[in-house]
Design a protein around this nucleic acid. Structure first.
Length: 231
DNA sequence: GATTGATCATAT
DNA sequence: ATATGATCAATC
């Protein structure tokens, strides 16, 4: 029998949240899904957010689609991150949608990116596609805030990208811009359009974009944690 | 094999 | 269309 049950209400402290996340380490997604009464999809092709929702449930996050941090009372954001057998990220990490209009005068200090990343509970999950979803294991969690260097890296990339957006260059931005933070499409499909600023300052329609953390960034922060926890 | 651009589900 | 949760898969 598993001495484990999902939170039915949000955790009241960071310590409580982290403790519960630590309890989940080592369990498989299949075990956690069964205890939560959730069916396990064969793969994640049509259930890309399934793992995130499962962990939200187990950790007592305000499930669903509220434009808030997952643990609003604690100011903590939950991110599951798929990793390989060495704990390296297999995917980039979505942060938030990029505002493409109304950006005159915006600054890093009050940006959505900075707010989202102020405090993050990272939960690594085995993500190799050759491991059946139900057999993938939850890894050791990490409660993280950007250090000075990370914050600076993020700020520089964000400022470069936002400058291009404000200057009407959004359609010229590719995922190659930015060292640790990149801008990529974030949409249902390539026909979903949103308003942006064109190269002559005119309104245009373009693909919605999102900010994503590149793997070099998340890989480093997870590696640091792994290194430190091995002592 | 890694990366960039595209895409999937669901709720509001 | 926008927000939440992300991974897929064509291409380099």
């Amino acid at each position: 029998m598993l001495a484990l049950s999902p939170f039915t209400s949000p955790p009241e402290t960071e310590a409580q949240l982290l403790a519960q996340a630590k309890r989940l380490a080592g369990y498989t997604l299949g075990e956690l899904a069964a205890l939560a009464g959730m069916p396990v999809p064969r793969d994640l092709k049509r259930d890309k957010g399934w793992t995130g929702v499962l962990l939200e449930l187990w950790l007592g996050a305000s499930a669903g689609s509220k434009p808030e941090q997952d643990f609003a009372a604690l100011g903590v954001e939950l991110k599951t991150i798929p990793v390989d057998n060495l704990g390296r990220p297999l995917e980039t990490t979505f942060v938030c949608v990029a505002p493409l209009t109304g950006n005159t005068g915006v600054v890093w200090e009050t940006s959505h990116v900075r707010h989202k990343l102020k405090r993050v509970l990272w939960v690594p999950i085995e993500g190799s596609r050759d491991i059946p979803v139900a057999e993938r294991r939850v890894g050791s969690p990490l409660l993280w805030s950007p250090n000075e260097e990370e914050e600076q890296q993020l700020r520089l990339d964000w400022e470069e990208l936002m400058d291009l957006i404000v200057l009407g260059q959004v359609t010229r931005i590719t995922a190659r811009h930015g060292e640790v933070l990149q801008l990529r499409p974030k949409a249902a499909n390539s026909k979903a359009l949103t308003e942006a600023i064109g190269e002559h300052g005119e309104p245009i329609l373009t693909l919605p974009r999102g900010f994503y953390l590149k793997k070099n960034f998340t890989s480093a922060l997870l590696a640091r944690h792994f290194f430190l926890s091995s002592y």
